[in-house]
């Protein structure tokens, strides 16, 4: 479904992604693991088109020079120069890091915004699914999302991405800053989504609860691919064990 080939991203002269290639097949759950500044967020933003948008914006105002090289293929079509909204139309939806929600809007309004490009019937069905996946959101649907806890905001952020009806769901560090109980809740939801056949590419620093669930994973450091393999292979890898499981 998704192929990233020899991707390189520079911010001025700083190399954020270095000749990185990866693949996500339809129905797969693929993990990207790495420490802070490994390039996970840049990779996710580049696949979703946000880096391209920032590049245009910076070019227009003569700001930071951003260079993107390589190929991103969705079902064989090169989407490198396609704007973020068209990528969403094609089914690539990113749930950004740090549970971003529209804080002045209610939970239900946020979910409606998630379905901005979808028709009324699709939005209604998707919101029902989200309330089933996260019953807490159903109870909180009239509350302003800025008043939710971090964990509830993360559920909402995932819900918004789901209402956009992704074919490929990108999740950037969904466990970041959450309590252990909330992490379990998010992991449970991600596991269910994967079991129901949704294609997921998830980046995470905290690998322990995610690695057992993935079909395949990539470990990156300083924007460079270090190790790849199935979830089991990664968990058996001594370097990965030392770095992510403290063993």
């Amino acid at each position: 479904m998704l192929e990233v080939k020899n991707l390189m991203v520079f911010f001025e002269n700083a190399l954020a992604i270095n000749d990185l290639s990866l693949e996500v097949k339809a129905g797969e759950f693929v993990g990207i693991f790495g420490s802070n500044s490994a390039g996970k967020t840049t990779l996710m933003n580049t696949i979703a088109g946000l880096t391209l948008h920032k590049q245009y914006r910076e070019q227009r105002k003569g700001g930071e020079r951003i260079t993107i090289v390589g190929k991103i293929l969705l079902d064989g079509e090169d989407i490198m120069l396609i704007k973020p909204d068209y990528r969403v139309k094609k089914g690539i939806v990113l749930c950004r890091e740090r549970h971003p929600v529209f804080k002045d809007n209610t939970v239900h309004e946020n979910l409606l915004l998630g379905g901005y490009l979808r028709n009324g019937r699709e939005v209604k069905e998707s919101i029902e699914f989200v309330y089933d996946l996260f019953p807490a959101l159903d109870r909180l649907k009239g509350r302003k999302s800025g008043l939710l806890s971090g964990g509830e905001q993360e559920m909402l952020a995932i819900g918004m991405a789901l209402v956009a009806r992704p074919r490929l769901l990108l999740m950037d560090e969904p466990l970041l800053g959450l309590s252990p109980a909330m992490q379990q809740e998010v992991v449970r939801a991600v596991k269910r989504l994967s079991q129901e056949g949704l294609t997921i590419l998830l980046s995470e620093q905290y690998a322990r609860p995610i690695m057992p669930l993935i079909d395949r994973g990539y470990v990156i450091e300083n924007g460079t691919l270090i190790v790849t393999g199935t979830g089991e292979e990664l968990m058996d890898n001594p370097e990965v064990k030392a770095a992510y499981f403290g063993m």
Partner: peptide, 14 residues
């Protein structure tokens, strides 16, 4: 108006 990049990631053209 609240968060341009999140809106973009949901398909809203800024």
């Amino acid at each position: 108006a609240q968060d341009e990049y999140t809106a973009l990631s949901l398909g809203i053209d800024s």
